[in-house]
Simulated assay, not measured.
Amino acid sequence: MKILGLIVEYNPFHNGHLYHLQKSIEKTKATHTIAIMSGNFLQRGEPALFDKYTRAHAAVKNGVDLVIELPTMFACQSAEIFSHGAITTLNSLNCVDAICFGSEEGDVDILYTISKILVDEPEEFKISLKKYLSDGMLFPTARSLALFDYINDFKLLDISKEKLLNILNSSNNILGLEYIKSILKLNSKIKPYTITRVQSDYNSETIESNICSATAIRKQLKDLNDISSISKVVPNNTFDVLKSKIDDDFYPMFDDNYFEILSSIIIRDKNILNTYFDVNEGIENKIYQSIFTSLTLDDLKESIKSKRYTMTKIKRTLNN
């Protein structure tokens, strides 16, 4: 028996997820699969399209053996905390042999080497990082350059500075690096694997083939309000599960559906907004001021957005 762990959101389970599942099983030679899945709210600070039970049902119908919920306190957080929660959960089961994640890079050895440096923080790396920071560089830039210096000096990888920067700035690579870092920190026996993402970019909003991003699927459903519009990009099992829910009057959830409730809570709790988790750095003042000039959730998010507050930070904060 060999058990494969998958860290997923399945929002919803589409053809790309089925490809990833099948290729991961093939690559790891797994006999069983366990998916750690976000619940009703997701890593980027958005509600799931359908509830966690519906998404778990679709996952099992498409071949996943067991779905375990990733608690919201981890699911709606940064890549580091999200990954730590997921890997800790898998590791605590004491039966998972491997994980396999999609990445833009596709070479797990490169990701592993980078992760190990970031976890171990060799003295030469720290000296280089400190130098770049003292030159006034932002931390992400300084860290990237210090990494390249260390890798190049010790000839750990044959990699250009441009490629390293691309790896460190690609969304799925970032998650992959955090998965591996968590495995190393936990001294876990789980072995990491990766497969290259195919065809569609993670944030692409267009449907151009039978494999597209979940973002594109959600946009299609929101714009057309027609489940049949996504039939070619999701497995038949997913389509049947989702259509059954809609036929029973359980419709997709989009973040603007709860704008009125959110507005009421912000106004009601104006004096205690800073007691909510992750509401800090004065963002509570910006939220309260902006609610009176915003007609939609998008208006509110755009009003709060600044160099200090990223859109992802805003989404997660409003969900809290």
Score class of each variant (00 low, 15 high):
Lys2His: 12
Lys2Ile: 10
Lys2Met: 11
Gly5Val: 06
Leu6Phe: 05
Leu6Asn: 06
Ile7Val: 15
Val8Pro: 04
His17Ala: 03
Leu18Val: 03
Ser24Ala: 12
Ile25Met: 07
Ile25Ala: 02
Glu26Phe: 04
Lys27Asp: 07
Thr28Gln: 03
Lys29Cys: 04
Ala30Pro: 01
Ala30Ile: 02
Thr33Val: 12
Ala35Gly: 01
Ala35Pro: 02
Ala35Met: 02
Ile36Val: 15
Ser38Pro: 02
Asn40Pro: 02
Leu42Tyr: 01
Ala48Val: 03
Leu49Lys: 02
Lys52Val: 04
His57Asn: 12
Val60Trp: 00
Lys61Thr: 04
Lys61Arg: 07
Asn62Thr: 03
Asp65Lys: 02
Glu69Ser: 09
Thr72Pro: 00
Gln77Val: 01
Gln77Asp: 07
Ser78Cys: 05
Ile81His: 03
Ser83Ala: 15
Ala86Met: 06
Asn91Pro: 02
Asn91Arg: 01
Asp97Trp: 03
Gly102Ile: 10
Gly102Tyr: 10
Glu104Asn: 11
Gly106Asp: 12
Ile110Gln: 10
Leu111Arg: 10
Tyr112Arg: 12
Ile114His: 08
Ser115Gly: 10
Ile117Lys: 07
Leu118Gln: 11
Asp120Gln: 15
Glu121Gln: 14
Glu121Arg: 13
Pro122Gln: 07
Lys126Cys: 11
Tyr132Val: 01
Leu133Glu: 14
Asp135Ala: 12
Asp135Asn: 14
Leu138Tyr: 08
Phe139His: 13
Phe139Arg: 03
Thr141Ala: 14
Arg143Lys: 14
Ser144Phe: 00
Phe148Ser: 01
Asp149Val: 00
Tyr150Arg: 02
Asn152Ala: 05
Asp153Tyr: 05
Phe154Pro: 00
Phe154Met: 01
Lys155Leu: 09
Leu157Lys: 06
Leu157Ile: 06
Ile159Asn: 04
Ser160Asp: 08
Lys161His: 08
Glu162Cys: 01
Glu162Pro: 00
Lys163Pro: 00
Leu165Ile: 10
Asn166Gln: 13
Ile167Cys: 11
Ile167His: 11
Asn173Gln: 08
Asn173Ala: 10
Asn173Gly: 07
Leu177Ala: 05
Glu178Asn: 13
Tyr179Ala: 05
Ile180Leu: 09
Ser182Trp: 05
Leu186Asp: 12
Ser188Gly: 11
Ile190Asn: 10
Tyr193Gln: 04
Ile195Val: 15
Asp201His: 13
Asn203His: 13
Ser204Phe: 02
Ser204Asn: 14
Ile207Thr: 07
Asn210Asp: 15
Ser213Glu: 11
Ser213Asn: 11
Ala214Asn: 09
Gln220Asp: 08
Lys222Ile: 09
Ser228Arg: 12
Ser228Gln: 11
Ser231Ala: 15
Val233Asn: 04
Asn236Ala: 13
Val241Gly: 01
Leu242Gln: 08
Asp247Ala: 09
Pro252Leu: 03
Met253Ile: 15
Asp256Thr: 00
Tyr258Lys: 03
Ile266Leu: 12
Arg268Ala: 09
Asn274Gln: 09
Phe277Leu: 14
Phe277Gly: 00
Val279His: 05
Glu281Ser: 12
Glu284Thr: 05
Lys286Met: 04
Ile287Asp: 09
Ile287Ser: 08
Ser294Gln: 06
Leu295Lys: 15
Thr296Lys: 04
Leu297Val: 07
Leu300Gln: 07
Ser303Cys: 13
Lys315Asn: 15
Arg316Tyr: 07
Leu318Ile: 06
